[in-house]
Design a protein around this nucleic acid. Sequence first.
DNA 1: TTTGTGACCGTAA
DNA 2: ATTACGGCCACAA
Length: 115
Amino acid sequence: MPKIDHGKALRICETVNRVPVGKVASYGFIADLAGLPGRARMVGSALRQVSAYQDVAWHRIIRADGRLAFARGSDAAHRQTERLREDGVVVVNGRVDLARYHWQPELSELLQMNY
DNA sequence: TTTGTGACCGTAA
DNA sequence: ATTACGGCCACAA
């Protein structure tokens, strides 16, 4: 069972799973959309716990500057890189070009989730 | 109760 | 391009 608030974790996962294949989003951006402004760290800890037993698109979430959150060379970083490439996202030196791949939700989609 | 620690972030040197 | 710092907040010790 998750230690972190189930409601928040659920909202975070729902938001994360909205990121389309071939796109990425930052922890802070997801936090904002999930109604948790300024709590980027919580998105990270939520994903860490939930990804173990739930189906979440955790690999599409990266830092605000385009780098992967995991240390270069770590197993986790390699797994994430591979999954991103399967999505069609180009990753070079543990970094993604945000100008090209950062998710920009449509207005209609933003309104759909009331926050 | 206090303290240290993160899959973070924006700003400023 | 790096490093430092303060904010952020739930959790574990």
